[in-house]
Design a protein around this nucleic acid. Structure first.
Lengths: 351, 351
DNA sequence: TTGAAAGCGGTACCAT
DNA sequence: ATGGTACCGCTTTCAA
């Protein structure tokens, strides 16, 4: 009465072979579509395919992995999965690219802890991942742990300057230039105030303002005021409100990120100064927050989804060795005077 | 000259055994801490540990998995990884619980597509995951695909009523009651208007308003107006603005989610009506958006992190069969009149 | 106290 | 055109 002799539920390759009356070898070649290298009669092929079908055969990936030393798993070590939608967007991009190449993502969160990071790396390496992605929520400099020899690595939104691994970073200088071009294009060539400090001084970010100033200068435009403050609502509010109190009057405010812009909106509303009627606002991030603001915020976007995609592409291509910086596109919003005021969807206007 | 004879880089259990001058069997028992079941001389034990240390031995998880038929991997099938921070928070909670029990998360995104879902499930089952989590961004009803026999499953923030698997859902009725208690506690017993439709009509959500009304009634309090609208900024703005135009004057607004609350803030500001001076606002979600609003938003929070944690706990406990609903705690905010107005941090007040 | 040997489910070399 | 067999690295039964 015994069927094909397997005790557990799932049919194995041997079961399929038995049912088709061939050897496991033959079945293996056929089911892997390698029917050309081996010469297989189309009759045999059909019998095997049919048997597999009938049994509902699915290959055991674990066994395949053990034998081939390739798991088709990409390990993702991220500082904060939950930290805002940023890491999540990178994850989504990485996942999309991974699925496209028949890979799957395994994730781990470090909370920024070095020890946890090391443990996770071990965990992933023990599991024979085909490659490792290091993902940071905020563009930053990191230090990769030991034990990575023989593992492909790509760092996303972060970089270990003492490692030879490729990285994927946003092009912050280019982003700064793009913001400048938006201002120039809208005829906003004076009364430009920049809010927020340009943090990381390395070849990472920190070049946002450089790019902005540089591109403005090419058209003979100068920044009227530079208000340094941490990247959050309350500090940005305080910085701009103080400046306005002292009689400052801007025509355009450039915010170093969207949270800063949120604070800037509040400060402008206190005066009040209408956006974009009296003052245009442009920012960096392209976050969801900007979509919630009214008027919606024009923002030079961090291309996180694309960065995740690109990182996997590089990781999986043995030929790729080079780091890349990704273009930061302008996400249009109603906070800029024409020609950037075209609304994408119907929203209420002020008075 | 040949060392222990392994060609590839990583030392194997056999290598360790050879170096310690014992059999693989012995080495295996020692390295797995099963030194009690087997009687091993402490001398042998030391030699093996030392050898492992010196070689930098790490067990090959793939081989272990093949042999033991347990991967210590949990597959997470989610509709939208990137969709707001909600799925991400569930993921973070699941990950925390998983790591604690020496498991790791493998993720996949379906974009809400049935076909993709089925493919992912196959992918994960082929990879011998120890269990599967189905995660939805929005509390909802789903239909699980075939091929799950023999796999442990828990649905998180969603439920397949035709399946026997446990689910983890927020206690929306309890959440509604909690909002009611907050209102009553603040003495807000008239002029209560509820904004937003109570979508899902099943035993899922839809009971938020039920809970609210029910608890209010227990204190003889009634809702003054019910404004149905989709859960987004513009519709909520429109709904409340229209009602205010018609002369409506609320003392408290209950918003079905935080995006609705944001629209409500805008509508109130137009009149203007001060929050919380003239009108108190309470909402549901406990999202980041609420933390950004000024005044910060009091909101009955969806405990996503905890739901993720709990789901993994249930998944990994063979004894657990029951679904659970998770308490929705009140996240305090400055949008409620005393005694809920105590600010958590110094923020600006309106004139 | 310890080791030999048989797999777990595939893949791939080498015969036939 | 197809099948035998060794092996990937580890666990576990059984014998010594």
């Amino acid at each position: 009465m015994s069927r094909t002799g397997t005790r557990s539920g799932k049919p194995t390759l041997t079961d399929v072979a038995a049912r088709a009356g061939v050897s496991a070898t033959t079945a293996s070649y056929i089911l892997n579509g390698r029917t050309l290298e081996m010469r297989i009669s189309s009759d045999t092929e059909e019998r095997v395919q049919l048997a597999a079908q009938e049994l509902g055969y699915r290959p055991n990936r674990t066994a395949q992995s053990l034998r081939t030393a390739s798991t088709r798993i990409i390990g993702v070590v991220t500082d904060y999965v939950a930290g805002g939608m940023f890491s999540a967007r990178i994850l989504a991009g990485a996942n999309a690219a991974a699925r496209q190449q028949d890979h799957v993502l395994m994730i781990g969160e470090t909370d920024g802890d070095t020890r946890t990071t090391t443990e996770l790396v071990h965990e992933f390496v023990d599991r024979q991942v085909d490659g490792l992605l290091f993902v940071a929520r905020t563009t930053s400099s990191i230090r990769l742990p030991q034990g990575l020899a023989g593992t492909r690595v790509v760092t996303v939104n972060c970089i270990d300057t003492s490692s030879p691994y490729p990285s994927v970073l946003p092009d912050d200088r280019g982003g700064g230039r793009r913001a400048a071009e938006a201002l120039i294009g809208a005829g906003l060539t004076d009364g430009i105030v920049v809010v927020g400090e340009d943090t990381t001084t390395e070849a990472l970010a920190g070049v946002r303002v450089d790019g902005l100033v540089e591109r403005l200068a090419e058209d003979g435009v100068r920044v009227a005021a530079r208000l340094e403050c941490p990247w959050n609502l309350d500090d940005a509010y305080g910085a701009l409100a103080g400046w306005l109190d002292r009689g400052g009057r801007p025509r355009a405010v450039v915010c170093l990120n969207d949270r800063v812009a949120w604070g800037v909106y509040h400060a402008l509303a206190d005066v009040p100064l209408a956006v974009p009627g009296e003052v245009s606002v442009i920012s960096f991030d392209g976050s969801e927050l900007g979509r919630w603001m009214r008027p919606t915020l024009a923002s030079v976007a961090l291309p996180f989804f694309e960065m995740g995609q690109e990182a996997v592409r590089i990781l999986l291509d043995p030929a790729e060795k080079e780091s890349v910086v990704m273009d930061m596109p302008l996400l249009p919003g109603d906070s800029m005077a024409a020609p950037f005021a075209a609304p994408l969807s119907g929203v209420e206007r002020e008075g």
